[in-house]
Design a protein around this nucleic acid. Structure first.
Length: 263
DNA sequence: ATGACACTATTTTAGTGA
């Protein structure tokens, strides 16, 4: 099964670009973040024509997440918020997926809060949001689980163009990195890092100042899998090609992250 | 040192993003 996560930075502005990628890569199950679209304006029919059904948690202007899967896959939405974080915006959607081998897979899609900067009150909100996430994962265990999305945290110095010079700065702070560590403690494995322990690759590049061409990026988009699933990964890659323009179509500032997993 | 780009909104400048 091909699984992917992608912060598309505005569904309505990106829809033709998204179509190009879906057609090229043919994922089975995918997680979108930053829809910037209200739930009731989501173009369900558009994706049905491409062969997908959609579960959507959107809002006006900002945030918004969706899970898309091939029409033949058995899927059921199970939640659209973290307990205690209902005011944090549309950042969470989860589903149970029945695989072809009759496993029940919990699939969670996240758009984690940004936090703005180390001095801003939003950082505290970001840290508490992660605490709510960890608590929920601990309270409601699942044998087969995938947690993916835009985490807005750089786990280690290899995951940033700033290297060790980034340590302690926003997105690279110890207090943020502890929240990623807490997810590992919940039995989840970052499958990109597992398959490529020494590879410096990024999933986000600033639009400004030619950051993409200078490869000044961050790896902040992950697919985390429970240990049993992490052993069934065939390949994981960051689809850097789809951070580039396609003709007149502008790319998101994030690249898709794709994994092929035997399920 | 700063800004740089792209998106959305009862848009025409401002807020947000990472």
């Amino acid at each position: 099964m091909r699984i992917a996560t992608w912060n598309i930075n505005g569904l309505r502005a990106r829809i033709d670009y998204v179509d190009e990628w879906i057609t090229a890569r043919d994922p089975d199950l995918l997680a979108f973040q930053e829809l910037k679209t209200p739930t009731d304006l989501f173009p369900h029919g558009h994706f049905e024509e491409l062969g997908y059904k959609s579960l959507v948690n959107g809002q006006k202007s900002w945030n918004g997440v969706a899970i898309l899967c091939k029409q033949e896959i058995d899927i059921e939405e199970t939640g659209n918020s973290l307990s205690g974080q209902e005011e944090a915006g549309a950042r969470y959607i989860s589903a149970l997926v029945r695989t072809s081998t009759k496993k029940t897979l919990e699939f969670i899609n996240l758009y984690c809060p940004n936090g703005k900067n180390l001095e801003h009150a939003d950082l505290e909100g970001k840290l508490r949001w992660f605490d709510s996430l960890t608590k929920q994962l601990s309270n409601e265990t699942q044998a087969h689980r995938i947690l993916c999305g835009d985490f807005n945290i750089v786990p280690a110095s290899i995951d940033t163009w700033k290297g060790e010079k980034g340590d302690g700065t926003m997105f690279h702070s110890t207090q943020e990195r502890e929240k990623i560590e807490a997810l590992y403690q919940c039995g989840l494995v970052d499958i990109f890092r597992q398959s490529k322990p020494d590879t410096e690759e990024f999933s986000w590049w600033d639009y400004r100042a030619g950051a993409f061409h200078k490869n000044q990026g961050l790896r902040i988009d992950f697919i985390l899998a429970s240990h049993d699933l992490s052993n069934s990964v065939e390949q994981v890659f960051i689809d850097r090609e789809y951070r580039k323009k396609i003709g007149d179509l502008t790319a998101s500032d994030h690249a898709p992250v794709v994994a092929d997993i035997v399920l």
